[in-house]
Nucleic acid binder design. Structure first.
Length: 195
DNA sequence: AATTCCGTCAACCGCAATAAT
DNA sequence: AATTATTGCGGTTGACGGAAT
């Protein structure tokens, strides 16, 4: 435990490790290498491919971006609903949640949650008065399977300024019938049964 | 028109879990 | 069985672009 695996900054030989955004060249190298040799064994892969990156970085780049089945683009309303449901169920188990959204990565879902959803939850909290101690919850709060009703939000967040969400209303095939939900409906429905 | 503010996303970091030796 | 290496996860940061001032 006193040896950090990918910490060869400076010490081991002279393998300068690149960090930061990936270039197109690097992407191509990685794609090409994996096409020929498959993925896995990331540390040796990085070396063998001639990339001056850590295995970790390669893995992340591949999984989150280069993999052919990664699906980019807007998260659909259906996906959004699913994310909210699953997050309510499991909390910040991003990779677990991602397994239920084909083509979406944990990173993407996490980002989506933090930038789009959590914000609204906070708004809703603030909105419903309660100046209690809500610091940064909604994340690491519930882990155990305790029936923890993460607070009862009683008013849906006002949702006006929300650009770059899908045009609404949207035709959703949620449970069964009940096909049409507005965004407000979705939010409040989710916020209300916060477990 | 220039500058600041804000939201989004890709990528990094540290830690934990798991696998290999 | 113990130690070390690798992989996976979740939180956080920093760059960038567009909106607001």
């Amino acid at each position: 435990m006193d040896k950090k695996p990918d910490d060869d900054n400076g010490k081991s030989q002279d393998v300068e490790v690149r960090k930061g955004p990936w270039t197109m060249e690097e992407d191509l190298i990685l794609i090409n290498y994996i096409a020929n040799h498959g993925e896995g064994s990331w540390n040796s892969l990085a070396k063998a491919a001639g990339l001056k990156r850590t295995g970790k970085s390669c893995r992340l780049r591949w999984l989150n971006y280069l993999r052919p089945d990664v699906r980019r683009g807007n998260i659909t309303t259906e996906e959004q609903l699913l994310i909210m449901e699953l997050h309510a169920k499991w909390g910040n188990r991003w990779s677990k949640i991602a397994k239920h959204l084909p083509g979406r990565t944990d990173n993407e879902i996490k980002n989506f949650w933090r930038t789009r959803i959590q914000k609204h939850i906070k708004q809703a909290e603030a909105f419903s008065g309660q100046s209690s101690e809500m610091s940064d919850q909604a994340s690491t709060s519930h882990m155990s399977s305790m029936p923890e009703p993460m607070e009862t939000y009683d008013s849906p967040p006002s949702f006006q300024g929300n650009n770059n969400m899908e045009p609404l209303p949207v035709n959703l095939s949620v449970e069964s019938n009940e096909a049409y939900w507005s965004m407000d409906d979705l939010w409040s429905m989710q916020l209300l049964n916060g477990d």
